[in-house]
């Protein structure tokens, strides 16, 4: 815990989140300073931060609905100002649920809830699902993804029971497309979109795995990049290009500490800062 968050990435620890430590670790691995921000710390401290991450977990026990209670927390007022100033905000998994419940995402009408993260719809199983999936980088609108190229296929793990982006309003989907807001989509290891399970692991609309606001500084994503920030974290039997890299690291422990497929989300902040 720190007295100042100036120049640092603040990882907000709502009661019940459980990915704060590894998120801090991943941000630091990308070359930035990062600290945990306990939810009831003075809100003005948050204003000084370089960027804010809402990590995964079960904030406030998922009471009522995942993310709802945290979305109403007093710190969110400060975070709203922060985001509207164009500063970087990333919500991962439960953090994504908070951003959706707070109306930051899709952010077409600020703080209006236009989307939901609904229970997974999967053939042959129900509830919580944890696995590695592939997502495709779309467009070049999102600040958190400026180190990825359009069409990059990124293997990342997911772990959630409610990760299905959904809306009843077709206009919302059209607007999100128009603004290039659907920046991560579930795909096969070669980048093909397939709406069926397990390629689309939760039935998400448009295969959406990550959605940013129209300005591109706020990103809500269900997969966990902090769990894919080192090569050793990638399963050696994964399909696609990363398998070759991962298998090359077998019996070479020094290579295991190399960058994993998810680190670039955090490293993108450096590029953002340095132009």
């Amino acid at each position: 815990m720190q007295d100042s968050f100036s120049g640092k990435v603040a990882v907000i620890q709502f009661p019940g989140v459980n990915c704060e430590s590894e998120s801090v670790r991943a941000v630091r691995a990308a070359g930035l300073e990062s600290e945990i921000f306990r939810w009831n710390m003075p809100p003005q401290l948050l204003g000084e931060a370089l960027a804010v991450i809402l990590p995964g977990g079960f904030s406030y026990q998922d009471r009522i609905r995942a993310g709802v209670v945290a979305a109403k927390d007093t710190i969110m007022d400060k975070l709203s100002d922060f985001a509207r100033d164009g500063k970087p905000v990333l919500g991962i998994c439960n953090g994504a649920q908070v951003l959706v419940e707070a109306g930051f995402i899709p952010g077409l009408h600020w703080e209006k809830i236009d989307l939901a993260l609904a229970p997974n719809v999967m053939s042959d199983r129900e509830g919580y699902y944890c696995n590695w999936v592939h997502v495709r980088a779309e467009g070049n609108n999102c600040l958190w993804m400026n180190k990825y190229k359009e069409g990059d296929v990124i293997p990342l793990p997911i772990a959630h029971a409610e990760g299905r982006f959904v809306t009843k309003d077709e206009d919302i989907i059209n607007d999100m497309h128009k603004n290039n807001q659907i920046v991560l989509r579930y795909c096969t290891e070669v980048g093909d979109l397939d709406s069926s399970f397990p390629v689309n692991p939760n039935g998400s609309v448009e295969n959406a795995a990550g959605i940013c606001n129209p300005e591109g500084n706020v990103l809500a994503m269900m997969p966990h990049p902090e769990r894919a920030s080192w090569l050793r974290q990638v399963p050696e039997d994964i399909s696609g290009k990363w398998k070759t890299k991962r298998r090359n690291a077998c019996c070479r422990p020094e290579i295991m500490e190399d960058e994993g497929p998810g680190l670039a989300f955090f490293a993108s902040l450096i590029r953002e800062m340095t132009g």
Binding site: R125, Y128, C130, P157, A159, P235
Partner: peptide, 21 residues
């Protein structure tokens, strides 16, 4: 597999070999 996928094997980021592998 049904069971393994119902558990979080990834949290904390230390996994090298997961259940079932």
């Amino acid at each position: 597999n049904y069971v393994f996928r119902h558990y979080d094997s990834e949290v904390q980021g230390r996994a090298v070999i997961r259940p079932g592998e």
